[in-house]
Nucleic acid binder design. Structure first.
Length: 235
DNA sequence: AAATCTCCCAACCGCTCTCCC
DNA sequence: AGGGAGAGCGGTTGGGAGATT
């Protein structure tokens, strides 16, 4: 097993195990967390009798030992959601994983790198697939948002209109930062089978290949919105 | 059957973020 | 306000397993 030296308490040099975890280490970690909780990872290894660094213990717990973890067999619906969320959020693996119960950021990242990242599947392909599943309910007549721009605190989702026929380049319609779920949902069309809130928001900037942008004043509001999309896709 | 290649995934590393004093 | 410690995140790597030659 690979070892690595590191400074322990009071500057004493200790040698930590690295590499694959063995069953005995897993057992010690699970037992310790069961009794004391998953806090204070820095001091946990010594208290749990593990010759590992705290980061390694935390990763092992979060990705493999924590209750409720699903392993493998990512379903078509989950894959669809991963692709959509990746389009929206970029490589924010933890946020994407947060939308997929039982999945970890590491697993999603690995899955993306191994399977999805190299596949030329566009959001339009997904919408076509989705429309097929929705046949009979009217399908999607408005675009789903496809990309989030800007920083964590200044989120901007951008939706490209796939049916726009043209050329893009149209001026984007800027919505103000006070997020309004009703207004946003009204852009997503027929997700609830067509019942309208009557609050149709503004208009696409023009009718041809327009770009719509939505601004969110914080991530939670966006993710609340994303919950609606996610649960819709998974149902 | 052995050697080599390729792919996948568990784990590590370093940077950033958040919280507390 | 700012500095330090701990936690979290995303990129990268190493090694094992299966495929190919």
């Amino acid at each position: 097993m690979v070892k690595k030296t590191q400074r322990g308490n009071k500057g004493v040099v200790v040698v930590a195990n690295r590499g694959a975890w063995i069953a005995e280490e897993d057992q010690k970690l699970v037992e310790y967390v069961r009794i004391h909780g998953d806090k204070n990872w820095r001091t946990l290894p010594a208290k749990a009798g593990l010759n590992r660094c705290g980061k390694s213990c935390r990763l092992r717990w979060l990705n493999y030992l924590r209750p409720g973890i699903k392993r493998g067999n990512i379903s078509e619906e989950e894959e669809d959601l991963i692709i959509r969320l990746h389009n929206l959020l970029g490589n924010r693996w933890s946020l994407i994983a947060g939308r997929l119960p039982g999945r970890t950021d590491n697993e999603i990242k690995n899955y993306w790198n191994a399977h999805l990242g190299k596949r030329p599947l566009t959001i339009e392909d997904l919408n076509l697939k989705l429309n097929k599943r929705l046949e009979g309910t009217g399908g999607l007549t408005r675009p789903l948002p496809t990309r989030i721009l800007a920083s964590r605190r200044d989120l901007v989702a951008t939706a490209m209109d796939p049916g726009g026929g043209g050329g893009g380049g149209a001026a984007a319609e800027q919505l103000h930062s006070e997020f309004d779920l009703e207004r946003l949902l009204s852009l997503i069309t027929n997700l609830d089978g067509g019942s309208s809130t009557g609050n149709d928001v503004g208009t696409e900037a023009d009718g041809s290949g327009s770009t719509l942008e939505f601004e969110f004043d914080d991530l939670d509001k966006f993710m609340n919105y994303e919950d609606d999309i996610g649960s819709y896709l998974l149902n």
